[in-house]
């Protein structure tokens, strides 16, 4: 696969090229919050960032999406029809989250056409983390600050230039078109692996993550859930910022004659999440909802998709108002 170098001063040209063929999304800061937003001009982008506050999953799985409209007895599904998406500057953990979401939304039994329409032709250009955050722990969950999973191209900041490595055929063919980018030298590759080593060292010491699933198998009635639930607010801050959470609710807006059907993010911490039509709620107790969050990520998803349901981005740690730190919870699970 190709390994080239993109001079930082030529980044603007590359961005302009991408915006011609793609709906390009990249990290942008608005009102102190960094999110992946549609790029119109290269100046709007900040690649000098740690990670976005909100997760880039919202591009393929928007918080609110109209999926169908109806009028006088006829209904019409609504699919995304714009240019294919390109994402620039995706961190390795988040790129991995797309792979998990894709598995969830395209199983043998069910395919989610709304996810597929958006995700199918997307181009993912990742950006390696040279500088980790104190809340990062991707190394616990099969990830690395320079991981390539889920990307077409990985960029690594080498100072004056970005090392650009093709990961998939799609990435390779895009790099082939870059006639004036230099080939990367041995020294460049060495520098990149040095940076990876330093980044890895800055992460917290690993735990025995492989044992989590089995431990959780026996923790259905563990008092740990009550203990966490004492302070957990049962809000949705963690799930709504989480790159791997994927639950949704369907709502109709309109009247009998015409209106639209929308899907909206939902979250297992909410009491309404499991409330049944009869009024019965199998997860009435807040502790049961807390349990669901951790069981799903570190047991059920592993069972169903052979992957962790968390990629260690640390967003939930940063924003939980009552300091429920998933790393502490994982340690507690292993100690049980």
């Amino acid at each position: 696969m190709k390994k080239l170098k993109l001079k930082k001063k030529n980044l603007g040209d590359f961005i302009n090229e991408l915006t011609r063929d793609y709906a390009l999304y990249a990290p942008q800061e608005k009102e102190g919050t960094i999110s992946f937003s549609l790029v119109e001009k290269p100046e709007e982008i900040t690649l000098d960032y740690h990670n976005s506050d909100t997760s880039p999953k919202e591009i393929f799985f928007p918080q609110k999406e109209v999926i169908l409209t109806y009028q006088d007895g006829n209904s019409q599904p609504v699919f995304y029809e714009g240019k294919p998406f390109a994402l620039l500057g995706v961190r390795p953990c988040d790129a991995k989250s797309f792979q998990l979401l894709h598995q969830v939304f395209s199983t043998k039994k069910f395919e989610d056409p709304y996810w597929l329409t958006r995700f199918k032709n997307a181009l993912i250009i990742g950006l390696a983390c040279n500088d980790t955050l104190p809340t990062c722990f991707c190394n616990w969950l099969d990830g690395s600050p320079h991981g390539k999973e889920g990307m077409d191209i990985l960029l690594t900041d080498l100072g004056e230039t970005y090392l650009a490595e093709a990961v998939t055929e799609k990435g390779e063919s895009l790099l082939k078109q870059q006639k004036d980018w230099e080939e990367a030298s041995e020294a460049d590759l060495k520098q990149a692996s040095k940076l990876e080593e330093t980044a890895l060292k800055s992460l917290p010491p690993k735990i025995e993550s492989a044992k989590l699933k089995e431990k959780l198998d026996g923790m259905w009635d563990d008092p740990l859930w009550e203990e966490i639930a004492q302070r957990c607010l049962n809000c949705g801050a963690c799930a709504y910022l989480c790159p791997t959470c994927h639950c949704f609710d369907i709502q109709d807006e309109g009247n009998e004659k015409n209106g639209k059907r929308i899907r909206l993010w939902d979250c297992c911490m909410y009491p309404l999440f499991t409330k049944e039509g009869s009024g019965h709620n199998p997860r009435k107790n807040p502790a049961d909802r807390v349990k669901q969050r951790f069981m799903h990520k570190f047991n059920y998803i592993i069972q169903n998709f052979d992957k962790y349901g968390c990629i260690g981005c640390g967003r939930c740690i940063t924003y939980c108002p009552v300091n429920i730190d998933v790393r502490e919870v994982l340690k507690q699970i292993l100690e049980t």
Binding site: E31, T54, Q63, L233, C235, G236, A239, P321
Partner: peptide, 16 residues
Amino acid sequence: SKQYSKCIRCYACRNA
């Protein structure tokens, strides 16, 4: 309007 347009309906405010 500017403030509330940042809201992601997580209800952390209400629950706190």
